[in-house]
Amino acid sequence: MFLEILEYITANKIQVLTLTWEHFYLFLISTSIAFVVGLFVSILASQEGKEKLNTFLISLTGACQAIPSIAVIAIAFLFVGIGAYPSIIALIIYSIVPIVFNASSGFQNIDPKIIEAARGMGYTNIKIITHIKIPIAMPVIMAGVRSAATINIGTAAIASIIGGGGLGDLIFIGLKLDKSAILLVGAILTALLAIIVDFLLYLLEQKIVPTGLKT
């Protein structure tokens, strides 16, 4: 089996590389957009006086994590059709959930006294967000980004059924042709991509989480 897998890869180098790149591209675009939008939403909901909205957002995103990825793909197909574009939309929706869930929980868990001290010392509202809230919530935010990234790469494989491309193509070809070697090439490379991305994000996390908050 191992030889068959290697054979397939060497015989179809270009195809395998192209699909891996497509897969990575789907992940990168959708996670980046999800991160920016998700963080923005969480920041807005974390302003004083919006505690109820914040709690609602945490419950909602918590519940949404129970939706199977295939359902999100199917819904995206119903509303925006097929191709890479609907796949990206589905992936954004699916990976924004852990990002908002974690960022909002992170902001909610900051001791209000710290925010009050910051305000009392003369920080502006913007500076409270950039210098206090985001750095303090950073460990939780990064945990959310890492889980979003892993989920995203796994879900991107399924997006192949609505024409998203990527390594999912190999998996579905393998299934159709009953060739487990091809299926495994897709599955193994998807897993490998997820592991590498998670490791890179781990390195990033080590770099940007403030020293005083590391345990």
Partner: peptide, 8 residues
Amino acid sequence: VGLFPHMD
């Protein structure tokens, strides 16, 4: 608790 935990 008023000290900022992420700053030395």
